[in-house]
Structures are given as C-alpha cells and as structure tokens.
Design a protein around this nucleic acid. Structure first.
Lengths: 150, 150
DNA sequence: CTTCATATTTGTAATCATTTTAAATATGTA
DNA sequence: TACATATTTAAAATGATTACAAATATGAAG
C-alpha cells in the first residue's frame, strides 16, 4: 500500500506527469480510497477542505491524465456518472441498487481473461460488473421484514 | 424472428403495454435492428421518416417502459449514451474503438452465469463487455500499412 | 353520437455530468 | 528578473436525459 507523498510523487514522475500539488492530492485521495470507487464530485468535495481554490475542471483533467497513463481505471456502472478506481489490476465490480456501493469482485474465467476471444477482435479492455442487492442490504431487508411482522 | 405487426402487438399486450402506433414502430425497429445496438437518436431519426411528428421524449419514454418490462436491455458501453438491445438473452458485447460498432459476444463462464458469486450478494444483472479493435478494422489497418509502404 | 376521464404524445425547458475555452497563475530556465 | 510554457481556474458550452405542462388520442358511459 503506497500512501506517503514521496512515493506518490515518484509514481507521477515515472509516468511523465508533473507532480503538482493538486495532482499529488488527487492521487493520494485515490490511493487511500480504493473501496469507494469515487466520482469526480466526491474527490472534489473532499479536496476542497485542503485546497479551497481547487476546481472541478482540475479534477477532471487530472483523472483523464491518470487514465491515459494507466494510473487509474474508469468504470461506467451507474449509468449517470463515471467512477474511478485506483486498483488497475483485472477485476470486476458489483453495484448495489439499494445502497449504491460498488464492491470489487474477483472472477477468473474466459471473460475476465479476455484473451481467449475467438472472434478475431483485438481486446484492449475487459469490463465486467453485476448489479443487485448487496449482502448487507439483504440483511437490512430481512430485519425490516421481521420488524414489520411484530 | 418476430417481425410482423401482429405479433409485435401481442408482445406489448402480453407485457401490459398499450400497443400504440409509436410503441409498435419502436418495437418493430428494435426487432429488426438487433445487430447495431441503437441509440435513442438513431431510433428517432429512422422513425421520423414514418412518423414525422414523433418526439425524442416518446422514444425515451417507450424504451424506459420496454426496459421495465424486460422487452429490451440497456447497455452503457460507450460512456456517452445509452444503447438498447432487443436481445435480452444473456450475452456480452464488444465495442470497437475505431469504427464504433458494438458486437454480440457469447461467453460461458462463472462471470456470465453470475449465480456462482461467492460474496453473498443477490445478483440481478450481469454485464460484460470488451473494448478494442474489431476484426474488420484490424484488416483495414493492415491494408493501410501496406499502402503506405508501397 | 356526445361527453367526460384517462392515457399518450409532444415540445419546451430544466438538469446534470463533462468538455471547451480563455484568462489567471505558477513553474522552470536563460 | 524576464520570458516561455504548463497548469489551474472560472465560466460558458455541450450533449444526453428527464421533468413538466399543454395538446391530442382513446375508450367507456350516457
């Protein structure tokens, strides 16, 4: 787990991205929030506390730069806004329709491998996700049902 | 393959959707265009020729109704606009970054089955897609390379 | 065939995520 | 210190989608 400023700086330099304060802070945020798959808005709102002058545009530009260099992945799963993922290792996601959380899912199969595609297309990206009701929400629903039947 | 007005009407009635002219035409379009995964715009532009008064809103409303009743699937793959699919059988997609075409992909594995998810979540939807360069575009690229080396 | 209630369609305006643009600011170098 | 370049910023533009309200169609009751 890489969380200190020094190695974040090294990561950016390695990718040929000038390590400005904003970029370091955005990368730091991403590296520390690997479970919530944040939106631009979420990142922006959080960084406002440290950098009161930061703009949405900077967050957008920075994430697009990170994306190009493979520092983050972009995931379109909610249908409304882009989610970003610091974990660029091959994995899939689960979106809970009730609480809205996005969780990582590990699946190994011809789909997640991608390469075995027989159609002659050159596969560059593999995206997989599920939608449904997450474990925790299922528990909540059960609890509510119990309450209402008292 | 269901393409005549009569059975389209039956499909709508079966789902409790009143078979208006617009809805029949939209369903007809969907049933006849199973390979291009159209946008709302594409459907709208085509139907304008038959129904000069049709509105975008009607196409949106109708597709949302179809979606709710499971007559079509919605796929978010380009990141910019929703694509609709008349084929609601479990399958995945390939988006060509060069020509923009979306092709059907058949894959059978734990991911496409969905059910085998070990995390305790209730899976209601399975979405999978690849991005890359399609077979035909790869050929084009090769041909261009040959030309430029003449 | 009229009247009325309801559903559908339509056009316009609003919304929301994202991109574009241009000015302001910061950075690095001569 | 001065200048060229990159970055950040705010504001405006864009584009897909939804909300809204008026117009139109539909279907049943008298």
């Amino acid at each position: 787990m890489i969380t200190n400023m020094k190695s974040l700086k090294a990561i950016l330099e390695e990718k040929g991205i000038k390590p400005t304060y904003q970029r370091l802070k955005i990368l730091e945020y991403m590296s520390r929030n690997t479970v919530n798959h944040p939106t631009v808005e979420m990142i922006y709102e959080k960084l406002l506390k440290d950098i009161p002058t930061i703009s949405m545009t900077t967050v957008y530009n920075t994430l697009n730069a990170f994306l190009e260099k493979g520092l983050v992945d972009a995931i379109t799963i909610t249908g409304t806004e882009m989610r970003y993922d610091f974990n660029t290792d091959s994995h899939h996601h689960f979106l809970c329709k009730r609480c809205g959380r996005i969780m990582d899912i590990e699946v190994t199969c011809p789909f997640s491998e991608g390469k075995k595609l027989q159609y002659g297309h050159r596969v560059e990206e593999v995206h997989g996700y599920f939608k449904g009701i997450c474990k925790d929400c299922l528990k909540d629903v059960r609890n509510s049902a119990e309450e209402s039947s008292l």
